[in-house]
């Protein structure tokens, strides 16, 4: 942190000013002139919250993607299919049992098993051939997409939000002040906040597991140099299978989240694959903090973009990606 400030005082200052401006926009009561130019504060605040919660969902999807990429150099383009399949599994379980939490668990386990099977049966055989592995994942994603279309049809599915989490919650953010001097607070759907919280908890848990445990140490060593790690006697193939299973399982779980606050249909797999791609390109491939930062940026850009410049929302995301590629091709927080 301090090293970054020393090396790039200009950039650090710009980031500081941007953060301060964002905080002011979120917490201050907007003066009338700003409201006229920019629209109501309520609209802005809900766009920010939608962006952050969407970023949480993107983080869940992209963290698995970046984990698999970081360790195995495998651009797993079936990641979107795994997301969608997890969502379908979660839907089936929640319809059958009525339990939201159980649907998470089932989606995680089933999709993690599929991931492990893919690693053992397919990717292990063509290890080290990155381009070919990627091609294989493209083929698999086509097959998966068609199988899912076959099994679930083209309908929209949505998982029922559990009763305890339905309804809005009042947040301590002032959106406006009434003429009587009474402050109006932001109302926000509870379930989205819970999901955001879950994403943050999972993110922190992953960070702790990677940085403070023995297994995490092995995985990090594998990211840096897997050949040396294997030479030191670590059963690297087992680590690969476990990491692939974990990454896939996270995608499956994200599918349940996505099915709860959005919906599932054919085509969502591509949408989330694209989102993961952009998130990891922005954040830096193979980096978990990078995935978090990238997900936040993409989520905010999409939501703020769709509120303030609706026609060009997708272009904003894309322009950010181009900008990052132009300035820092390895991504914002890439290790190397």
């Amino acid at each position: 942190m301090s090293r970054f400030v020393e090396r790039y005082p200009g950039r650090a200052l710009a980031i500081l000013i941007a953060v301060a401006a964002a905080l002011w926009l979120i917490f201050a009561t907007w003066p009338p002139g700003l409201e006229e130019a920019f629209g109501r504060k309520k609209v802005f605040l809900s766009a920010v919250f939608n962006g952050v919660t969407l970023g949480g969902l993107y983080f869940l999807v992209a963290s698995g993607f970046t984990l698999i990429f970081g360790l195995m150099r495998n651009v797993n383009l079936t990641h979107g299919s795994l997301y969608l399949f997890g969502g379908y599994i979660g839907y089936a379980v929640s319809v059958a049992t009525g339990s939201w939490l159980l649907s998470f668990l089932c989606a995680f386990i089933v999709v993690a098993l599929i991931g492990a099977a893919m690693q053992i049966l397919v990717f292990r055989r063509i290890e080290g051939q990155e381009l070919r592995q990627t091609m294989v994942t493209i083929g698999l994603s086509i097959v998966f997409a068609d199988l899912m279309l076959w099994a679930f049809g083209g309908n929209f599915y949505q998982i029922q939000t559990p009763a305890a989490l339905v309804g809005p919650i009042e947040l301590p953010f002032v959106t406006a002040v009434k003429s009587s001097g009474e402050a109006v607070y932001l109302q926000y759907p509870m379930v989205r906040l819970v999901i955001l919280l879950a994403a943050v908890v999972i993110g922190i848990a992953m960070w702790v597991a990677l940085n403070r445990t023995r297994i995490g140490m092995i995985v990090r060593a594998g990211v840096d140099d897997r050949d040396i790690l294997a030479a030191m006697g670590v059963r690297i193939q087992l680590v690969f299978v476990l990491v692939f299973a974990l990454g896939a399982g996270l995608a499956g779980m994200a599918g349940v989240v996505g099915a709860t606050f959005q919906s599932l249909s054919p085509g969502e797999d591509l949408r989330f694959l694209l989102a993961s791609l952009v998130v990891v390109i922005i954040g830096g491939m193979g980096s978990i903090p990078g995935a978090a930062l990238g997900a936040l940026i993409v989520g905010l850009a999409e939501q703020l973009g769709s509120v303030y410049i609706p026609t060009y929302a997708i272009v904003v995301t894309f322009l950010i990606m181009v900008l990052v590629l132009a300035v820092r091709p390895q991504g914002l927080l890439a290790g190397r």
């Binding site: 150099r73 651009v75 383009l77 990155e130 381009l131 990627t134 591509l270 694209l274 791609l277 952009v278 990891v280 390109i281 491939m285 997708i314 272009v315 995301t317 894309f318 990606m321 590629l325």
Partner: peptide, 15 residues
């Protein structure tokens, strides 16, 4: 390079 090219061109195509 390599696999990154696939990812970036795929992102351009979807955008």
């Amino acid at each position: 390079e390599g696999i990154y090219t696939i990812m970036i061109t795929l992102a351009i195509a979807s955008a």
